[in-house]
Design a protein around this nucleic acid. Structure first.
Lengths: 165, 165
DNA sequence: CATAACGTTAACGTAAACGGGAAGGTTCGT
DNA sequence: ACGAACCTTCCCGTTTACGTTAACGTTATG
């Protein structure tokens, strides 16, 4: 009979280059993000190796998305993400308590933060969409001008945006 | 009887700080963008003052949007926008010819470029949307967990992402 | 238990995107 | 025609976001 059937499976911890390749960042960047307070690894090995859990990996993925896809600076990302101190505290608090009320509070807070993040991302999306629509309006304008030329007509003005792209 | 009723109205040229305030950039940035080949002013005054036309202003606005709203680097913006040499050439070509075929060609090229730009912007928007949806999925996950807590149930696992935001 | 492969901190280097003068020329209103 | 308020071209300084050794300790493997 195995001695450890009751342990919930500690869910493998990754070393820094392992996470780096998995999320598409360099080890240097990840250490830098730690330096500026964007995330602390879940644990350190006996010999001080950084060890990351699945939650850390998700956070790093999110950071990368905010940087590459949303175009935020690391300073903005720091503001957007929860303060890392609080995250570490909450992780510990959540694990160490089984009081439902306390857990409820932690989860409720996390919900509020996500809502704020989604709102900011939506605003960004709206601005991007506005740019796209403007570009398409320029496109239609040019199409119109082309139709004029094809019809042999000659409007007296140069096409706005004809050379501004 | 006025002597200039036939002139098509030259459409006021702006000096650098005028455009800067209008598009929300600094004069320094605009000069820098010129330095790295993002745009050349439509003209220079007798004393070498930079003079910008409406087309330049539109291009600067677009550049600012690409930088702030879409989060592109200036290098990417340079690739995205038409090569500035070609733009200057085309502006002159369009003005100096009245051959419909040549004009058609210029306009057709501009159309193709805009299409490429729109495609890139759409891709960016898609990635942003994916991020938003992922964030909302985390949100729903938390909501579910909260419901479990409220029902007095206790799932054995910590909520994924409960502390990763 | 040796050693290759990987990790650590610390420090310096770098490209991008400007900011901020200095030294001097231009424009414009009166 | 002259002063205030612009503009010009250098040129050096700064911040951000890492890259790159250097010098050294750790871990996995035969």
């Amino acid at each position: 009979m195995p001695t450890d059937t009751a342990i919930p499976a500690p869910a493998r911890l990754l070393k820094i280059t392992e996470v780096a390749t998995e999320v598409g960042l360099t080890a240097r960047s990840i250490r830098y993000y730690e330096e500026i307070g964007l995330l602390n690894p879940a644990a350190r090995s006996e010999g001080a190796y950084r060890l990351y859990d699945a939650d850390d990996v998700a956070r790093l993925r999110f950071i990368r998305g905010l940087r590459d896809d949303a175009g935020f600076s690391l300073a903005e990302i720091g503001r957007l993400l929860e303060d890392e101190e609080a995250r570490t505290r909450n992780r510990d608090r959540f694990q160490s308590t089984s009081d439902p009320d306390e857990r409820r509070g932690i989860v409720t807070d996390a919900l509020a933060r996500i809502d704020g993040q989604v709102e900011i991302l939506r605003a960004k999306e709206a601005r991007l969409r506005a740019m796209i629509e403007e570009a398409e309006s320029r496109r239609h304008h040019l199409e119109q001008h082309l139709a004029d030329l094809d019809a042999g007509r000659e409007p007296g003005h140069a096409p706005p945006g004809a050379s501004s792209t």
